[in-house]
Design a binder for these strands. Structure first.
Lengths: 345, 345
DNA sequence: ATCTCTGTTGTAAACGCTTTCAGCTTTTTT
DNA sequence: AAAAAAGCTGAAAGCGTTTACAACAGAGAT
């Protein structure tokens, strides 16, 4: 299998030119006469030669590769983002090296270092759970940015060589909460499962919307779900338990569609009429939104646009252009069966 | 940014040893005294040195990297598989280079060649849509296998250096169809969206089960959905349309949970009682199964086990061991709300 | 006919690491 | 105490590219 593979020397010999010329043809650089070019190309075809990426990388010091880091590629939202990134990067002539780190800090750090040692030309951190509330914990990102540009999706961090593209989670959540309030709901539960950067924004959006409407929020109204991100049963059970302890709520605003879906399940099991007696708004407008019955009203933050913008920014940075360090896109509420039209009750 | 980075020479100088010794410490190979080892490690820490993967690769001719190819990382099932592979590979000291190819043949071929040019040590093809019914179309896999081992998940292809690990889709589908028949259903629709290798197996399972039960199948009973894999509405609409043309069916067996979910939606919209008047069985037992209401009976083919087995096989191959070229795992039916217990009606 | 310029090609030195081989220093054996 | 073995270390030769530099031919200018 791993015999002596064809090298540039073999080509040079067969074509009767020097290796420099072969290399020039390979990179179709500078001036090579048509005649020799043809000879070389023929030899390449004959031998089935493919350049050795290592050697090439050694010389060029770039692999034309971008490292993508995501906590969990099986998360619907992250998976979609990864897909878009892959697509955009390939279109720009870059390949991607994906690492799924899991949610532990140590692993994230190790993964980022690994990518750098693989000589990626840039790093994309997908999802806000790479940025911690405690600034000291983000040092690992800063030191990565000393070597290659670091792009953050849906998170913000100031630093040299760090660029952020994110959705306006604060405003989206503020608006969505406002819509529930506008429909006459006051006992609105906020259901979340991530303490990430954007998670904090969402929470603030919820709190501010409630406050601005003059509604008092008790801490138990913010329910944190600790289980896995797919455990719909567990989520519904937590709502059930919360209700059974006496907290009243007839609307749920969720930080994620899965959580929202569990709220629908819960409400149905209680016999509530949706959306009249019980409303739900999800987040991300994933395919789950149309899977649910009734279908979920959900916040769409135009992931594809975000990913495109982020990739474009990265490409700009790599080619030495000055690029905006922070870009924010607004989201929109996609109204479906779990909320009323939005007119006040 | 891209200043002169720290090399093994800097370390050797700072530690007062030769580069050979540094290299030895790096690979914790052979015999290095504790004292010098410590000196070197300190120097490494001080300088923040990371080895250059290219140079290393040039010497070793391996990047310790496995290429993972999947058509679409945002497909729930594939995403999950990718996640497991990443995890397993990392545990074995390998990194992964992921390429999402899309569903077009040309792109798959290009992606596989790209991976090889990046000097991956092996390739994993995730999902059966890499193997075509027409043998000639699979040549691109065979020629990849001339360079590195190729692993197939849920597909089969004979060839040197090709290894397959798959679920027993034929048997699972046969059993599942049989279960519906056993519950008294005869007008069972088969709903699918992929012409892949495993897709063909599933179809055959369905057909044989029907035949063995003495039930005649008309071609319109096999419904192929052409739209995107997430378009639940479109799927339900197709069922609706099929029914409106006069074809009667009161059970659906789907090649995928999303399809099954759309069948549930359809049945509910028609006012059928599930599972008594209308039953549904999905495939893959994804999170969608528990999202649906009622929840989906679905076939679980133990993806994690498959992925572990596949990775283990690959590791074996890479270390020169003789490995089975074909491994098949049986699946099991997870019964939930869309089917009766299984006792005959 | 000489000189300069331009276009094309070859030579050789990097790039940063691994690894063989040989040499030196210990330790163990006899 | 001498000989043999074992343990460490360093020098140097690759690995397959890219690229700066030199060289050389032929064309145009003088």
């Amino acid at each position: 299998m791993k015999e002596h593979s064809v090298t540039i020397y073999d080509i040079s010999e067969q074509a009767g030119v020097s290796i420099a010329t072969v290399s020039r043809v390979l990179n179709n650089s500078s001036n090579v006469s048509e005649a020799t070019k043809k000879k070389v190309l023929n030899a390449i075809k004959d031998t089935g030669y493919t350049p050795n990426a290592f050697a090439r990388g050694l010389g060029l010091n770039t692999m034309k590769t971008i490292g993508i880091l995501a906590a969990d590629s099986s998360d619907l939202y992250l998976a979609k983002a990864i897909y878009y990134f892959e697509e955009e990067l390939r279109a720009s002539g870059y390949d991607s090296l994906l690492c799924c780190t899991g949610y532990a800090h140590k692993d994230k750090k190790a993964a980022i270092e690994l990518l750098i040692s693989k000589k990626v030309d840039g790093i994309i951190l997908v999802g806000s759970n790479f940025v911690y509330p405690d600034v000291a914990d983000n040092k690992y990102i800063l030191s990565a940015a000393e070597k290659v540009p670091v792009m953050l999706l849906n998170a913000e961090l100031e630093g040299n060589n760090i660029y952020c593209v994110s959705s306006d989670d604060y405003k989206s959540m503020y608006k969505a909460t406002g819509e529930l309030i506008g429909s006459g709901f006051r006992n609105i539960l906020y259901f979340y499962n991530s303490l990430s950067y954007s998670g904090a924004l969402k929470e603030r959006g919820y709190r501010d919307a409630m406050k601005d409407a003059g509604i008092n929020v008790v801490e138990r109204q913010l329910q944190f779900f600790e289980g896995t991100r797919e455990d719909v049963h567990g989520m519904a059970a937590q709502l059930e338990k919360t209700a059974s302890t006496g907290l009243k709520f007839n609307a749920v605003i969720a930080a994620d569609d899965t959580l929202a879906l569990s709220a629908v399940k819960y409400a149905l099991s209680k016999g509530y009429k949706i959306p009249e007696e019980f409303s739900v708004i999800g987040y991300n407008n994933s395919m789950l939104a149309t899977c649910s019955e009734p279908e979920l009203t959900s916040i769409d933050n135009k992931l594809e646009t975000l990913c495109q913008k982020l990739t474009a920014t990265l490409m700009g940075v790599l080619s030495g252009e000055e690029m905006p360090k922070k870009t924010i896109f607004g989201g929109e509420i996609v109204t479906r069966g779990t909320t009323k039209g939005g007119t006040s009750k």
